[in-house]
Computed example of a mutant assay.
Amino acid sequence: MQLTEKIKIHPAEEQVDVLWTISNLCRLTYNFALTERQEAWKKENRRVRYVEQQNKLPEIKEKFPQYNMVYSK
């Protein structure tokens, strides 16, 4: 049973740059969130929930406008 289909895309040079930028911003967002969870557990022995981090995203996007490129749903 095949559940996915691979589609090869051929983006233009400008599109490649945008895709890399978005990919890097998503990577950084994930890594910062993971670090926040790990540090909270190590130092305070408390859990940081997804909703708590999700509610911080608008504040982060105001502070760092380049993160507005990232789709947040």
Rank of each mutant, 00 (worst) to 15 (best):
M1D: 03
M1P: 05
M1N: 01
M1G: 11
M1I: 03
Q2W: 02
Q2G: 00
Q2N: 03
L3Q: 08
L3K: 06
T4A: 04
K6R: 12
I7D: 01
I7W: 08
I7S: 01
K8R: 12
K8A: 11
K8I: 11
K8F: 05
I9P: 00
I9C: 06
I9S: 01
H10C: 05
P11I: 06
P11W: 05
P11S: 09
A12W: 06
A12P: 02
A12C: 08
A12M: 08
E13N: 10
E14M: 08
E14F: 11
E14H: 10
E14A: 14
E14V: 12
V16H: 08
V16F: 10
V18D: 10
V18Q: 14
V18T: 15
L19K: 10
L19F: 13
L19Q: 12
W20A: 03
W20R: 14
T21A: 13
T21K: 15
I22S: 05
S23I: 00
N24S: 12
N24G: 14
L25R: 04
C26D: 09
R27N: 13
R27S: 11
R27L: 12
R27Q: 14
R27M: 12
L28P: 00
L28S: 10
L28T: 07
L28Q: 15
L28G: 09
L28W: 13
T29F: 14
T29Y: 13
N31D: 15
N31E: 14
N31R: 13
N31T: 09
F32S: 13
A33R: 10
L34E: 09
L34K: 14
T35V: 07
T35F: 09
E36S: 06
Q38H: 01
Q38N: 11
E39F: 06
E39Y: 07
E39N: 06
A40R: 08
A40C: 04
A40Q: 11
W41M: 09
K42F: 03
K42T: 10
K43C: 00
K43L: 10
E44I: 03
N45V: 04
N45S: 14
R46Y: 03
V48S: 03
R49H: 14
R49S: 15
R49Q: 10
R49D: 12
V51R: 15
V51F: 06
E52V: 03
E52N: 07
E52G: 03
Q53V: 06
Q53F: 14
Q53H: 03
Q53G: 06
Q53E: 08
Q53T: 09
Q53P: 05
Q54L: 15
Q54Y: 15
Q54V: 11
N55W: 02
N55L: 14
K56E: 13
K56V: 05
L57V: 15
L57F: 07
P58A: 08
P58T: 08
E59I: 02
I60K: 04
I60E: 03
I60G: 01
K61H: 00
E62H: 04
K63T: 10
K63I: 02
K63P: 01
F64R: 00
F64L: 07
F64S: 00
P65Y: 00
Q66E: 07
Q66M: 04
Q66V: 06
Q66P: 00
Y67A: 01
Y67Q: 01
N68H: 04
N68M: 01
N68G: 07
N68K: 15
N68W: 02
M69V: 03
M69H: 05
V70T: 04
V70M: 01
V70N: 04
Y71L: 11
Y71P: 02
Y71V: 09
S72A: 10
S72G: 04
S72N: 07
K73M: 07
